[in-house]
Amino acid sequence: MKNIKILALTSLFLLGSLFTGCESVKNTNKTQRGAAIGAVGGAVIGGILGNNLGKGGNTAMGAVLGGVIGGVAGGVIGNKMDKQAREIETALPGAQVERVGEGIKLVLGENAVRFDTNKSTLTAGAKANLDKLIPVFNQYPDTNIQIYGYTDSTGPAEYNLNLSDQRAASVRSYLAAKGLSNSRFTTTGLGIADPIATNETAEGRSQNRRVEFAITANQKMVEEAQKQAGR
């Protein structure tokens, strides 16, 4: 993913140079140039990501990248996500927070969200860490949060798929019980799919037992960003 982000940023830099150097657009204002660069850049990035994501569309990263708006409106959304990402990092330093496109990929490993063995029950420590995220989520109500559950490769794949689905649902239920709108959440269990470490070691299996969030703008945020972009 690092290579994709570098390539995307390079593409936008080149596009920016192209647009600012063209006589036909020198008399446009910054908003108009930003929208043009964003629109074309979004198409370039979309092509790059489409070629690289493949089956990964059904992941937190795929969900974040699939919601790209682009243009000036995308920049407005991105600024809000920048701030939210920083607040998540401050609230829960043990989390992996990655700003991608116009959203946030949040990875909560066993050090942040742990379950009882072979169960979907959240431990007391997991609940305490989720409690730290709730004020941030409350501060940004105009976001959708997709929750993905994962397991290591130990045990039957079908069992792990069901367990991961139940664990993602447990996270959603806990956050909703704490006052967050249930309609903001969707859950998906992916079982042993998409490992982030080897399953050949205990440390690697521990990393693969995780929950990932894809935080993206909802329709209200998109519409407000588009209005701001049109000023």
Rank of each mutant, 00 (worst) to 15 (best):
M1V: 15
M1L: 13
N3R: 12
L7T: 15
T10M: 05
T10L: 08
S11E: 09
L15R: 00
G16A: 13
G21C: 06
E23N: 10
S24C: 11
V25G: 01
T31V: 13
Q32E: 09
R33H: 11
I37F: 02
G38F: 03
V44L: 12
G47I: 08
G54W: 11
M61E: 10
M61I: 14
G62P: 07
L65N: 04
G66S: 14
A73V: 01
G78Q: 07
M81H: 00
G94E: 12
V97E: 02
R99A: 09
V100N: 02
G101H: 00
E102I: 06
E102W: 06
K105M: 14
K105D: 04
L108T: 02
V113N: 05
F115P: 05
T117Y: 07
S120F: 11
T123A: 08
G125D: 15
G125M: 10
K127T: 13
N129C: 05
P135H: 00
N138D: 11
T143F: 03
N144S: 09
Y148C: 02
Y148R: 01
Y150P: 05
T151F: 07
T154R: 10
G155A: 12
P156A: 14
A157R: 09
L163Q: 06
L163Y: 04
L163F: 05
S164Q: 06
A168W: 08
A168K: 07
A169K: 14
A169M: 11
S170D: 05
V171S: 05
S173E: 10
Y174D: 08
A177Y: 03
G179K: 03
S181A: 14
N182V: 15
F185H: 03
F185I: 08
T186N: 10
T188M: 07
L190S: 13
G191L: 10
A193C: 03
D194Q: 13
I196F: 02
N199D: 15
E200H: 07
E200V: 12
R205A: 15
S206R: 14
Q207S: 12
N208C: 11
R209F: 08
R209W: 06
V211A: 01
F213K: 01
A214F: 05
T216M: 06
T216K: 00
T216Q: 03
A217M: 05
M221P: 03
E223W: 00
E223G: 04
A229E: 03
